[in-house]
Simulated scan of single mutants.
Amino acid sequence: MTRLLVRLADARKTKNPEDPRPEIDVTQNDLGQPSNLSRASVVSKLQALEREGQITRSYDYK
Rank of each mutant, 00 (worst) to 15 (best):
M1G: 11
T2H: 10
T2R: 14
R3H: 14
L4T: 15
L4I: 15
L5A: 07
L5Q: 09
V6W: 10
R7G: 05
R7I: 13
L8P: 03
A9D: 02
A9R: 11
D10Q: 15
A11R: 15
A11Y: 08
R12I: 02
K13L: 12
T14V: 14
T14Y: 04
K15D: 05
K15F: 02
K15V: 10
N16C: 08
E18P: 00
E18W: 03
E18I: 10
E18V: 09
E18K: 14
D19V: 07
P20W: 06
R21E: 08
R21T: 10
P22W: 05
I24L: 13
D25H: 12
D25A: 11
D25M: 08
T27K: 02
Q28T: 10
Q28I: 07
N29P: 00
N29D: 05
D30N: 14
D30T: 08
D30A: 14
L31E: 04
L31P: 03
L31R: 08
L31H: 06
L31S: 06
G32N: 10
G32A: 07
Q33F: 06
P34D: 07
S35L: 09
S35W: 05
S35E: 15
N36F: 06
L37R: 15
L37W: 10
S38N: 08
S38M: 08
S38Q: 11
R39V: 11
A40F: 05
A40V: 13
S41H: 11
S41C: 03
S41W: 04
S41F: 03
V42N: 03
V42Q: 04
V42E: 01
V42H: 04
V43L: 03
S44E: 11
L46M: 12
L46T: 04
L46Y: 01
Q47R: 14
A48E: 12
A48T: 12
A48L: 08
L49H: 09
L49N: 05
R51P: 00
Q54D: 02
Q54N: 09
I55Y: 01
I55P: 00
T56K: 13
T56M: 02
T56C: 01
T56I: 07
R57C: 01
S58C: 05
Y59M: 09
K62Q: 13
K62V: 11
